[in-house]
Design a protein around this nucleic acid. Structure first.
Lengths: 150, 150
DNA sequence: GTTTGACTCTGTATTGACTACAGGGTTTAC
DNA sequence: GTAAACCCTGTAGTCAATACAGAGTCAAAC
């Protein structure tokens, strides 16, 4: 029931502390503020940034979205939606997510092609102390495989 | 039998022409030279770069390695090996390739996890014109899923 | 013979998502 | 009281290009 971390909603916390709380580095937090991803916090008389609960939950939101592969621009949109969901539809969120899923699927396909090609030449290479001249990996990079009619 | 492109080994070609031959942009070619990936070509009296066959085959090598996901540093090593294979072993090439394959496999795993998580929430969202407040995608980003004992 | 357009040259700025300083000021712990 | 540990700012670096400004050069059309 909310122990562990004594986070009084009214007591502001420093950058180093919110960094530990969220797992972000304090430099990253400054960066997020700079690019407008995280709202500017209040400042103390000494110029120190002081953060509240909302900053903590926003940073956690950012972290989760990042783990799902969203880039900062997409996370910015998602945060806007989360902060004012009454101005957005589920259709909008679903479309945004779908586009992202497609990007990820495309990346997977590209990587899988690389993997299978690489694995094939890797298996052909005997991995011995012999001269790299006859290494099938090097040979495959040297040969115009698509232009074999040369 | 080597027609199609009349490439006399002794006639140097300009940057724009080698760009068309290899599919790289001419800016990219200048960039490769800058980072030491492509050897500095001779210059004409006017300061123009003039390329030979070796540059063409090096650029093609780079392109093929890039398609297999190698980064510029790795390609640099591979090019060194291809240019002086007597100083390298097949074991070395195989190890380099294996490390790269492992990186790619790791990336695939990460992306597949993202994909399955995203697909799951995507399916839960009805995609209607309704308020985004109850959108399961947004909710999943808002919830401390790992810290449910709060 | 000049002018037009396409090329080439250089250096520098931008992208994205940070990370890593340098060179100060402040706060905390002992 | 002093030293460590924090905070502040601005700036530079990373990777792999891409893009642009401003200048010079070249080939061909008119």
């Amino acid at each position: 029931m909310g122990q562990g971390m004594p986070l009084n909603s009214d007591k502001p916390i420093t950058r180093g502390y919110i960094a530990k709380l969220t797992g972000c580095s304090s430099e990253t937090i400054r960066y997020y503020e700079q690019i407008g991803l995280l709202a500017e916090p209040n400042r103390g008389e000494n110029g120190y940034r002081y953060y509240y609960d909302t900053h903590v939950s926003h940073l956690k939101f950012i972290d989760r979205a990042k783990q799902l592969g969203f880039d900062n621009k997409e996370i910015h949109e998602l945060l806007n939606i989360a902060d004012g969901p009454e101005n957005h539809t589920r259709a909008e969120v679903k479309a945004l997510t779908e586009a992202h899923i497609n990007t990820i699927r495309q990346r997977i396909l590209t990587l899988q092609k690389m993997e299978s090609t690489l694995s094939a030449v890797w298996e052909q290479c005997d991995g011995s102390d012999g001269d790299a001249e006859h290494c099938p990996i090097i040979l495959s990079l040297l040969s115009d495989s698509d232009e074999t009619c040369e």
